[in-house]
């Protein structure tokens, strides 16, 4: 078994690998990407339209802001929900274990679009019930339904990341901490979670990236995020560059996340560097 104290692969500086000349396939692949990039730049230069930009840039920015808010709020809410679920998954009590397993299976095993549709339009059919229990004010708003559905969905994935990461820390760490007289909570906070965080970091980033893109589905319940606004702009102009601008903005978000992850990883693994 691999010891979690071994430095993770990404912590190895890439420049110790021997440099090789790229092979034929590599050059071909690189050429194809270069070509695609150049064509894109050429297309955007040819299709440059200041009127379009002036008219739709503010709309894109508001869509971008919607996407960021949606993902940030749902991710944090999902993280909170994921803690009891992850604990339940690792629990010995089988009521907790079966309930949280059912939750994870249900939300990971069904498409997000179906979950969202059922939560929004499905719950809408039971307005009287929700009014009686005083929750209609919440479920009547598309924005709250979007956050609710996205948080429940991501919680199932996050619970699995969390459980796996905590389980990856060797048992000896718990035992060692106990022998030093540390409480369970202190052990978790000071010993286990810092090591689990190294394992969990990349999967968490993956989950955020997937959420950034999955959040576009909320357009079916009339919440217009970046992609929703793009579709609206496209339906007015029928100009494909509306989608290219959206792609560039999504790429920027993902690149920012990637760099933030690299930074966080360097910080988390600084004790492993020699």
């Amino acid at each position: 078994m691999k010891n979690a104290l071994d430095p993770p692969l990404a912590a190895t500086p890439p420049d110790v690998l021997p440099r090789r000349r790229p092979g034929f396939a590599g050059v071909l692949a690189l050429g194809a990407w270069l070509l695609a990039g150049l064509s894109l730049v050429a297309y955007l230069a040819a299709a440059w339209n200041p009127d379009l930009l002036a008219r739709y840039a503010p709309i894109y920015l508001s869509g971008l802001w919607t996407t960021i808010q949606l993902v940030a709020i749902s991710f944090v809410a999902g993280a909170l929900i994921s803690v009891p679920v992850a604990l339940g998954r690792g629990s010995k009590g089988f009521v907790q274990r079966d309930l949280s397993t059912a939750y994870v299976v249900l939300f990971r095993g069904t498409p997000f679009i179906a979950q969202l549709f059922l939560i929004y339009y499905g719950f809408g059919q039971f307005r009287d019930f929700f009014e009686t229990i005083g929750l209609w004010g919440f479920f009547r708003e598309p924005w709250y339904c979007a956050i609710f559905a996205l948080a429940l969905n991501t919680a199932a994935y996050q619970a699995e990341i969390l459980r796996g990461a905590v389980a990856s820390v060797p048992k000896g760490q718990w035992e060692g901490a106990k022998s030093l007289g540390l409480s369970r909570l202190t052990t978790l906070r000071k010993v286990i979670l810092p090591q689990a965080a190294i394992v969990a970091l990349r999967p968490y980033t993956n989950e955020v990236i997937l959420m950034v893109k999955a959040s576009a589905i909320v357009a079916i319940i009339t919440v217009y995020d970046l992609l929703g606004e793009t579709r609206r702009a496209y339906s007015r102009t029928f100009d494909f560059q509306t989608y290219i601008w959206a792609a560039i903005l999504y790429l920027l978000i993902v690149e920012l996340l990637r760099h933030a992850t690299n930074f966080a990883e360097r910080r988390l693994t600084r004790h492993l560097r020699r």
Partner: peptide
């Protein structure tokens, strides 16, 4: 903006 007419019909009903 709703994806099709079916969805806005559901929402005026609710």
């Amino acid at each position: 903006p709703y994806p099709t007419a079916e969805e806005y019909k559901l929402d005026i009903d609710s």
